[in-house]
Design a binder for these strands. Structure first.
Lengths: 331, 331
DNA sequence: TTGACTTCCGCAAACGTTTGCGGAGAATTT
DNA sequence: AAATTCTCCGCAAACGTTTGCGGAAGTCAA
């Protein structure tokens, strides 16, 4: 019942715990014969290293913290897959904290990370987050922090993000190309306005339409806070007799609602409504109509962020900059 | 740069570390005035408790391990959400380990849990897992283990699962009711045959069809290992001119492939093919046709498993049994 | 005034691990 | 044979925290 420690092994062999410790880690200053004897007994006694002891002694935790605003079925699983893979391949553990889109919980989570002594933090911010003081404290104490996906643009720190402006531009340009009408109604459906990714994508969207002076476009931007609201927003348009010709959708989360609305309204795509999205590509597989989209990859995002994390652990002096993930237009 | 410890605070106030420790935890044997002074200074110095120290001293880790075979976009996120919520509400941390459907990695993961000194493990097994010796060792050492979703039926242990047999029965019965043909072709599409959930659902499926002697049914079971294979299997049927009337689909993972095939074949549902599934309900929202399904909830599964985990931590003598999650038929 | 209680803080030890140093003895070189 | 190097193991201390005990000073009642 009692957990076997190095001391127990040492006592049984009438030797010093330090020797056992060295032997188990194949240090050259223990003879081969003794090393083998120690390992054999350790195995027989069911010895497991005690992480707490190591952490205390070394002052390190071999743990990376991952703080996310929301656990969604879209982006998040692929991110996590990449992060988990890399983190464990490096012999580190992963501590997952979920902020539920609340700054207070985000602050709590940063404190949990601090207490746990994580050696690095990957964080995607909540919609509510207006400043990152609660992380700055950790930065000062030397813990590398990487902000990914949902970040604060006007803040200092390592960032890994989707190139939202250009992605939105590409998508909107595709939307324009498909529009044959002279006075098209083009709507953009976005997530919460406070999000950096919303800001980027809205900028790209407006940018393209504003420059498309050759057409008389009625453009409008709508901001919703979740899938359900997105669905209701689209339903509402049709209920009011407003029928946009084209729709830009900024993410899978929002697209899920749009697809739901399209289903209920029994719209033909792209005849009744032309849709372009920024997406991981799920809906091109699952829905019966084809939606052209700018493809983003959660996996690549997670991979780049985590790789950068370990680079930073090796060499904390790496230049602070904003990294972008490659995207591609899929039709 | 140096991390502030209790000792540092004690030194600064010329008092004993033990007193500081007590004060910070509001022990009654430190005067109110001194307690306040200590807390103030601790705050000012930026003191953070050192988890490693506490863990070592207490012999506990305040950590729960979650071992999963695969990070999927379907079931998994809702499970994780429930687990994360409860675990952190209890002041515990969550260690996520991903086996990638490999027994070897599952064994590694169990060892990581052992080394980390987790106080409990939630595990869903890989397809390859044939025995659970690697977990038994942990059980002996007093770590509660809960097997959820993908389990080994013929093994001893606390389990939380979907009632697969009855769920499949309900779904298959619905399939039968919709069938008007005299000689219907009814196919079942399943995940890897080694999985307990496959076994359960296949049993329920066969059970109902075998008893439906009033009709002359051509029934067949197909086993695939992922979404893509599911899609190819369905495509293959049509390529060969085989057109089942009804299709039972055992999970969202498989349903994703089926939906893809239906899209490519441009089948009308349920006219060309009648489909019933066991699902969390995603596709009823995302696909243009309606698929009746037996609803399962990853959230409820995660919640029940985690609740049981903490019950077990409180009282390890709780009777070992198999718990079932409620399901409902949605049309 | 004495005795019995409280209040409040210090002390020492322990959790498991690792590190650098020191030294006894063996092996090697001169 | 003496001097040098090597091999191998023990020793003590340290990481940060908490616990029970002991005791000094103060409070209260008889």
């Amino acid at each position: 019942m009692h957990r076997v420690s190095i001391k127990d092994i040492a006592q049984k062999l009438n030797i010093n715990p330090a020797t056992v410790s060295k032997a188990l880690r194949n240090k050259p200053d223990v003879s081969a014969t003794l090393t083998e004897k120690i390992k054999l007994l350790a195995d027989k006694m069911g010895y497991k290293v005690n992480a707490a002891g190591i952490n205390l002694r070394s002052g390190k935790s071999k743990t990376i913290g991952l703080i996310i605003p929301e656990i969604s079925m879209f982006f998040f699983p692929s991110i996590l897959k990449a992060v988990e893979e890399i983190v464990h391949s490096k012999g580190y553990n992963l501590l997952i904290l979920h902020s539920n889109d609340s700054v207070d919980r985000e602050i709590e989570n940063s404190e949990i990370c601090a207490n746990a002594g994580v050696e690095g933090i990957l964080v995607s911010l909540t919609k509510e987050t207006k400043d990152i003081e609660h992380f700055q404290e950790l930065t000062y104490s030397g813990v590398p922090i990487i902000y990914f996906d949902k970040v604060l643009h006007n803040s200092y720190g390592h960032k890994v993000v989707i190139p939202g402006v250009t992605a939105a531009k590409t998508a909107t340009e595709a939307l324009l190309k498909n529009t044959t009408k002279q006075y098209p109604i083009i709507y953009g459906l976005f997530d919460d306005q406070r999000l950096s990714i919303t800001e980027d994508r809205a900028t790209g969207f407006k940018n393209v339409l504003d420059k498309a002076s050759f057409k008389d476009i009625e453009q409008k931007l709508f901001f919703v806070s979740n899938s359900l609201e997105a669905e209701n927003t689209v339903l509402d348009w049709w209920k009011k007799g407003i029928k946009p010709d084209s729709l830009f959708v900024m993410s899978d989360e929002i697209l899920a609602g749009v697809v739901g609305a399209i289903k209920k309204l029994q719209l033909a795509i792209p005849t009744d409504l032309s849709v372009v999205a920024i997406s991981d590509g799920y809906f091109s597989k699952f829905s019966h109509f084809d939606i052209p989209y700018v493809e983003t990859s959660g996996y690549l995002l997670g991979k780049k962020a985590t790789d950068l994390m370990f680079d930073l652990i090796k060499d904390p002096s790496i230049e602070v900059e904003e990294h972008f993930i490659k995207t591609a237009f899929i039709r």
